[in-house]
Simulated assay, not measured.
Amino acid sequence: MQAPLILASASPRRRELLLEAGYRFEVDPSDVVEPDPAPGDSPVEYAIRLAWRKAHAVAARRGAGLILAADTVCAVGPEILNKPIDRADAERMIRLQEGRDTEVVTGLCLYRADRQAWVGAAERSIVRFRPLTDVERAAYLDSNRWEGKSGGYGVQDRDPFVSVSRGSFSNVVGLPMERLAGLLAEFPRLAT
């Protein structure tokens, strides 16, 4: 018997990616509070830990099903950039990334609720962030498109100042579809 796939996220971008790939799934957001990274956390460790926490919370609530959770962060060197808390935080993040290659990491967790079995993985991509003029930066910040987006931008919004230079586009959007397909194929015991 196939366990139902349950997306532990309210992200419309993750839902869209799964639908486009032909997956059948339910949505049950985890509502887990995302804490700040612990001192010394790498982006990979932090993203995987958050994905696991989200999957575990939904698995505990549901008791059955294959829970899919993901968490995406941006990083500039050792600094992890979550979702901006306000306009000033978004501006700080944007300025930090301008003119640089930045890393986007998505942690994935597939958690089989009834067996308490899980597997995790991380996908890394590099995004090129071009320098902005003061006018471009202000217009972008005024648009509020930075809200709810790691690093303060969304490549799926076709923001003209970011481009994926290496790695998975869907990873930068928030759900690395290639890695997800690989995990499902590699660990079929979780789905059946």
Rank of each mutant, 00 (worst) to 15 (best):
A191M: 09
D142N: 13
T72L: 06
A38F: 11
Q97N: 01
P78W: 00
E98Y: 06
A64G: 03
R61E: 10
G65Q: 10
G174C: 01
G120L: 07
G65H: 13
D157G: 12
R128E: 12
F25K: 08
G65V: 05
A51W: 07
L7C: 13
V105M: 03
L132S: 11
D86V: 00
G182I: 01
T106Y: 00
P39K: 07
V155C: 04
A75T: 02
I94E: 04
R24S: 15
V105W: 07
R92Q: 04
E123F: 04
Y23V: 11
Q2M: 14
L68N: 07
P188G: 02
V135I: 12
A139P: 11
Y111G: 06
V155M: 02
N82M: 06
G77Y: 12
L50S: 06
S168M: 00
L81W: 02
G167W: 08
A138Y: 11
I80D: 07
P12A: 00
R49Q: 13
R124F: 03
E16P: 14
G107S: 03
V104S: 02
V73P: 03
A139D: 14
A75G: 03
D28T: 14
R189M: 14
S11F: 03
S9W: 02
S125L: 02
V58P: 13
F169C: 00
E79L: 12
P84V: 00
S163Y: 13
G154C: 02
Q97R: 03
R124A: 08
R166W: 15
A113W: 01
V172S: 01
R115N: 00
G120E: 15
L190K: 05
N82K: 13
P78H: 08
A21R: 15
G107Y: 01
C109D: 05
L66H: 12
I94K: 01
A47W: 00
R179M: 07
S150Y: 03
S9P: 11
R179H: 05
H56M: 13
P43K: 05
W52Q: 15
S125W: 00
P35V: 05
G148S: 04
A117F: 12
L96P: 07
R15W: 03
R137L: 12
R13S: 06
A181C: 10
V32Y: 09
